[in-house]
Write a protein that binds this DNA or RNA. Structure first.
Lengths: 396, 396
DNA sequence: TTGAAAGCGCTAACAC
DNA sequence: GTGTTAGCGCTTTCAA
């Protein structure tokens, strides 16, 4: 009896209930009988009411509430007081209809439930809010159709602009689907720059990780989550380009360091399970056993993982087989997600500047609304930091 | 040189740019000269245009687009075609202004960047979307002031209802702050039921976890993240009530199973670091050493953690000290976050029904808008499932 | 089944 | 500085 629903009755009861439109929002007055007060629930306080109470016109009240400079301070104060007394809050639909501004951005992202994305969403919400906007989250769940649909629909009248992390859609296609709807992408690795974007420092970060491993005396490095030799890019989706870019950076570093001959790669999905697999396969390269039965004579002495999820999986996979980290094999991650701090062992990683990425993306978005918008799209590469932890703590 | 900013110039450049209002949204026509076409960017397609093209009146077109039954099928089809041809999308601000419905719910939650919350947000976005709504995320960052402010402001005209996971605010206070704004809470453990809420199965879940441990032969169980004996509730916030409820459930189980004498608790913050601390302290109860230097004679043979984050930390803390899991100490978590699947060892846990919690919450919300809304608030306890993994895989 | 008319609450333009 | 006026785009009566 592993599955148990508590209070099932109540639960079902709730589900079965009908639903209609909200009752809190004031029911429409019947147009032709303006005095009708029928069974309206909450009488909504309007700007007109505030203006009347303050003894000014609606437009003056509007200006006062928006703190426009032409309103005389004393007048403004009176209006503000009236608004407070009446517990007034401005009707955002009306404001949006009239002004064309909704104060809402949308964020289209595969999911919130993977650390890298969750971390980015947290930072984005904070940035957007700091600039007076609200953020609507839309998850694509890695479904190509849904992603394309959300991108195409972003051109509705609700969102003033879309932030997009596209897992399945190429940026040219994004440009086509989004039309002239203001868009800023994350992780766009296409060679063209057709849309503003903010990217993780894939090239610099991987280079740094590998040089760190070499500094720890490791020379037989396995890249986890990519292929070497590099495949020609059949698939142009963002995620596969990220993979390509990171792999290329690793290859370059191997060449420059003169260790190409001893290095290699094992491809896998960019999730923990993929990493676990890689860990097993690395353990399986053992040519012998130690006295206490652990694998010996491993092909690699380090794993450079393309992201932290993979790395956490690798730690798990190596542990399954009795391979010691970092003594036998050192491991590095990429992203700097919190979980790497308390894994066993803790994870050396390239920590991204999520707050910086978010703030930059929001700034890129806002500048589109400026009086002299920048004409050409740009790509910004975020900064990073190497965090050294247990998984590379021992030199060889 | 651990910190490196790539492409700093571009970055700073972007940050420095000014920003104003969107230009994509059609600039207002000058009211007094309706024919003015000036420098408007995109001519917006309105319902009137669609109606004209289809040869019907705006109101008929409106009905057709909303698929109201009174419109003749052929007429409706003509309208739909016209809308498609013109690439029309309805202006949600106008619709909201007129109809009083925005189609938006807000979710106020401490953060998205902690697995339990992220998982819940993912489920909530999906549920809400399935019911034709969009979700605005607002993070309180565990700041009491910000939480209170967001709750009080929820009564704006944008969100039709608020979903709330309050970490710092008691539900009576929530009721006061939110006024008559439709609200559904998560994790409200107050004894009163003054607001609709959906809770994790704290009582049943902890009970199940402890019985599982006892079934594995463990009788010296330590609760991590609570106090025993139970403290009188000075603090009435939701999180401290959850803590109390789970601890009480543990105490009850200990009593019923007759093992109270051997069991205990170590309090800590409900985060991984707290758990690591607990792990260290448990290791420190050792009265001796094994031949290979591991702690022996530990006070406890199992740890029942109040959530998965704590449990992952405990795994780490025990590993730090050479305590073996599950051989020396078994560990259980609570929440069923994905990370428990690939920890070392993988984590036995009480997995929550996130999708069910979300769907129930949305249903509770929607029923408030029904023609005959339920008069009294309810509390729904979600179901759960015990997932047995490596951290309790060995019997004693 | 369709159309005409009114107006949601607000802000922008302009007159004063 | 403040008030007047018009009207954003839509939905909702009510009449036809």
């Amino acid at each position: 009896m592993n599955h148990r629903i508590i209070s099932m009755q109540t639960y079902e009861h709730v589900r079965a209930l009908p639903h209609r439109r909200p009752s809190k929002i004031r029911p429409m007055r019947r147009p032709h009988r303006p005095q009708e007060t029928g069974r309206r629930t909450t009488k909504m306080v309007t700007l007109k009411d505030v203006a009347a109470k303050a003894g000014v016109s609606p437009s003056t009240a509007s200006g006062a509430l928006r703190r426009l400079s032409y309103v005389r301070p004393e007048t403004a104060e009176r209006v503000l007081k009236a608004a407070q007394d009446l517990n007034y809050s401005t009707n955002v639909s009306a404001r949006a209809l009239r002004s064309g501004r909704t104060g809402i951005f949308s964020l289209v992202i595969p999911t919130v439930d993977i650390p890298f994305y969750g971390r980015l969403v947290t930072a984005m919400e904070a940035s957007v809010e700091r600039h007076g906007y609200q953020l609507i989250i839309q998850q694509t769940r890695f479904e190509a159709d849904r992603e394309r649909q959300l991108i195409a629909q972003s051109d509705d009248t609700l969102s003033e602009g879309m932030f997009l992390l596209a897992a399945k859609t190429d940026s040219r296609e994004v440009a086509r689907l989004a039309g002239d709807h203001p868009t800023v992408m994350f992780e766009d690795y296409s060679t063209d720059i057709v849309i503003d974007s903010v990217n993780a420092p894939s090239t610099g970060g991987i280079d740094r990780a590998i040089r760190h491993l070499v500094g720890r005396g490791r020379t037989r490095i396995c890249v986890a989550g990519a292929t070497i030799p590099l495949h020609a890019m059949a698939d142009v989706s963002s995620s596969s380009r990220a993979r390509y870019e990171r792999a290329r950076s690793a290859v370059n570093a191997f060449d420059e360091l003169g260790i190409s001959g001893d290095c290699g790669a094992i491809d896998c999905d960019w999730v923990a399970n993929g990493g676990t697999d890689v860990g097993h396969r690395i353990a399986d390269t053992a040519t012998g056993r130690t006295d206490d039965g652990r694998p010996a004579g491993l092909r690699y002495d380090a794993v450079c993982c393309m992201n932290d999820d993979i790395a956490l999986g690798v730690l798990r996979g190596l542990a399954d087989r009795g391979v010691r980290v970092p003594e036998d094999v050192a491991v590095t991650g990429f992203d700097g997600i919190p979980q790497g701090e308390w894994s066993v062992p803790s994870l050396t990683t390239i920590a991204l500047d999520y707050e910086g990425m978010a703030e930059t993306a929001v700034t890129m978005m806002l500048r589109k609304f400026g009086d002299n918008p920048v004409s050409m799209p740009q790509r910004v590469i975020a900064g990073f930091r190497l965090i050294e932890r247990g998984s590379t703590a021992v030199s060889q």
